[in-house]
Write a protein that binds this DNA or RNA. Structure first.
Length: 391
DNA sequence: GCAAATGTCGCCGTTTGA
DNA sequence: CGGATCAAACGGCGACAT
């Protein structure tokens, strides 16, 4: 049994996508650069070897900002913002298209570099990880500096690291000295360094809970720590209220999870313009089938079968609905997925134009296991043995 | 008019099977 | 066989995250 406090690091790459792009286009360093949009022009190579980049002001479409450099953020351009809106704030900023393949390569590079030093890593997406340093010998600060240097050597990129006894606090403090930050803290630092922060800094308090807390006069984590348990209970329910209270006191026992399997695989797309369910039927149907094929291909490539097929629609007013259908057996067959998704679609009343369509496979199993359902020649939904018996 | 893509999780009401 | 009960699965949906 081990009663020593854990040493948990949270490592977050600094402006990751933008920084990867700057490795490619060093002449953009120091400029406001925005990554995002959809299908916008690649930089054009000029005769003299220099490049001409697209400006934000030239963009037309409904894309969002995925990342921006710190220079762009200084102009008020942040992730999730519509590119059109960003263009009003920073018309001269450079706009680059997203290149996920490149980011994935650098993601693998930095994670491998960290793993050389500290193998207990929890993946948290493309640009961040938790690292459990508890079992490693050596001074925490030195360890962290070595990790930062290893990431730099492997990728040329900087990152920020927070280290504390748990994931919750480490996630908060990796952000405190960004970029190129290194922040260590323990329980005794909570009143000074955590309590003054806005509640939204807690991973798990999003826009909705943040608004609700604000309405209760709770703006900082310290105020949350001092809130009446009954008040929280009445407004958030027992379980979430308990979690809020613990989080505000920096309590978090979650382990660093080094292995996990995906729970769902999905594809979705937002149309250039909203599509009418009947007038644009052909176009919708083509997109729908393509999404099903992509999900099927993703399943096959990754070696999974899905037993529950779901769809997601977003209407012109941004309302979102989902429908699911669980099949008698798992599949990665595009035709089976298409038919199941079609069944889901029939359950949605289509009284508005659509802006987004998505297809998802969940209840995943490994495809190395047996019994996949494939398309039957007649094109009817496959029935399970039990369903057949009930006939 | 404008707000991506992909994924996880929790809650809740309903259905289903024992 | 009807009814009561309970757990698991399902389906919908919202919140949250990167």
């Amino acid at each position: 049994m081990n009663i020593l406090p854990r040493r948990i690091a949270h490592l977050d790459m600094d402006a990751f996508y933008a920084s990867v792009e700057l490795l490619r286009y060093p002449e953009l360093r120091g400029l406001p650069v925005v990554i995002g949009g959809r299908r916008c022009d690649q930089p054009e190579l000029l005769a003299d070897g220099s490049r001409r980049f697209a400006r934000l002001r030239d963009y037309v479409g409904r894309g969002v900002v995925t990342t921006s450099t710190y220079e762009a953020r200084a102009l008020g351009v942040f992730s999730g913002m519509g590119v059109m809106k960003a263009a009003q704030l920073a018309p001269e900023a450079i706009l680059l298209p997203v290149d996920f393949d490149a980011y994935r390569r650098y993601s693998r590079l930095f994670k491998a570099a960290v793993a050389e030093i500290a193998p207990e890593i929890e993946d948290r997406g493309i640009d961040e990880i938790y690292i459990d340093l508890s079992g490693l010998p050596g001074d925490t600060l030195e360890l962290a500096q070595r990790i930062k240097q290893a990431v730099k050597d492997a990728t040329g990129l900087s990152c920020s690291i927070g280290i504390s006894p748990n994931k919750l606090l480490s996630k908060i403090c990796s952000d405190l000295e960004k970029p190129d930050g290194l922040t260590l803290l323990d329980e005794s630092d909570i009143p000074q360094r955590i309590w003054p922060l806005p509640v939204r800094k807690i991973n798990g308090i999003g826009p909705k809970a943040g608004e609700k807390l604000a309405a209760l006069g709770i703006a900082t984590i310290g105020q949350l720590a001092n809130a009446e348990p009954a008040l929280l209970q009445d407004n958030f329910g027992r379980s979430y209220a308990e979690w809020l209270h613990e989080a505000s006191h920096g309590i978090d026992q979650r382990p660093v999870v080094t292995h996990s399997e995906p729970k769902s695989i999905s594809r979705e797309t937002t149309f250039e313009r909203d599509l009418h369910p009947r007038r644009d039927r052909a176009a919708l149907s083509a997109v729908f089938t393509a999404l099903c094929s992509q999900v099927a291909a993703d399943l096959q490539r990754k070696g999974y079968l899905g037993r529950t097929i779901g769809i997601k629609l977003r209407f012109e007013d941004f309302r979102t609905v989902t429908r699911d259908l669980t099949l008698p057996g798992p599949t990665a067959d595009p035709a089976v997925i298409r038919r199941a998704a079609g069944e889901c679609l029939r359950r949605v009343p289509l009284e508005q134009k659509l802006r987004l369509l998505g297809v998802r496979a969940s209840a995943l199993s490994s495809s190395s296991a047996p019994q996949a359902i494939t398309a039957s020649p007649q094109g009817e939904l496959p029935l399970s043995a039990t369903a057949r018996c009930q006939r």
